[in-house]
């Protein structure tokens, strides 16, 4: 089983548009691991087959009747999740330390459904995605379960490839999305901010010993910066597998709910070339 993740560091560089275009170019199970702001389903338009409840970390609740307001829980909580003898659920990490230190057993832990994992059919094939309820912790745990489900679907259908849409950033859900993949595709933009972020996500890939390649999106909005990306990648021995020009058609396709390969034949051809290079890397 081969797994590819598309990541970026900086948000909004075009990860999801690129992943969606691959759906027209290869047979794979697609997995949207951007569980607190997923977008891939807006293009793939899934017909949901299975909806699996996701239980996040348990959260603490204080029984007001029993609570003597001694403050032991507030002092012990390292996440500052208890204020005025109430648990702020969005800050609670489920560690249970408050239940240990409460002298009157006023605190117990509750399990809640905080999101769902969906398996679906699309016009391109199989799709798995996760969606957290608003304001719930977006731990790598849901990402790991989405990936596990994608593997099960791939095995069942005899498909040898999983393509993962990663969230932005370099923290917990990103590490969970790109960990143990065969290749991570970093989508960069020729802006100072995006280059800075690309360098950091490439360091994360290196840290976890994951092979990385770069795609430069909107390369012509600042060709000087694009050259900077090329120099950087050359020095580091990282291949640039494609450069995509800025084109309003990407937004037009998104508005129509299509991927760019379906929407524009010329751009489809360049996306196909990029995909072929990526596929060669997997051999």
């Amino acid at each position: 089983m081969r797994q590819i993740a598309v990541a970026s560091g900086k948000g909004g560089t075009g990860k999801t548009s690129i992943v969606a275009s691959f759906a027209s170019l290869t047979e794979a199970v697609f997995a949207d691991c951007d569980v607190d702001a997923p977008n891939l389903h807006l293009i793939l338009k899934p017909e949901i087959m299975e909806r699996i409840p996701y239980k996040g970390m348990k959260v603490a609740r204080i029984d007001e009747e029993k609570c003597t307001e001694c403050g032991a829980c507030q002092r012990a909580c390292r996440f500052n999740a208890i204020e005025n003898f109430k648990v702020m659920e969005e800050k609670c990490e489920g560690c249970k330390v408050c239940t240990l230190v409460c002298p009157v057993n006023a605190i117990s832990m509750y399990e809640r459904v905080t999101g769902h994992i969906y398996t679906a059919n699309t016009r391109f094939g199989n799709f798995v995605y996760g969606l957290l309820e608003a304001g719930e912790e977006a731990s790598g745990k849901l990402v790991a379960q989405v990936r596990q489900k994608a593997r099960e679907v791939a095995e069942k259908k005899g498909i040898d490839l999983i393509i993962i849409d990663s969230p932005a950033g370099i923290g917990c859900p990103v590490i969970a999305s790109i960990g143990n993949t065969d290749l991570v595709i970093i989508v960069a933009e020729p802006t100072m901010a995006a280059i800075h972020d690309m360098e950091r996500i490439l360091s994360v890939a290196e840290h976890f010993k994951i092979r990385a390649v770069v795609v430069v999106n909107k390369y012509d909005i600042n060709e000087g910066m694009t050259e900077k990306i090329e120099r950087f990648c050359k020095e580091k021995g990282i291949d640039i597998v494609g450069k995509i020009p800025f084109n309003k058609k990407f937004t037009e396709a998104m508005v129509k709910g299509l991927n760019i390969v379906e929407y524009d034949e010329n751009i489809a051809e360049s996306m196909r070339k990029i995909w072929n290079k990526i596929e060669n890397k997997l051999k």
Partner: peptide, 27 residues
Amino acid sequence: PPGNGCPAIEAMHGADFVILVTEPTPF
């Protein structure tokens, strides 16, 4: 930070006002 996960929520916690920046697209 981007997203709607715990880091974004921590950045909003305790604010007097939140400005949400978006772009006019389906995403």
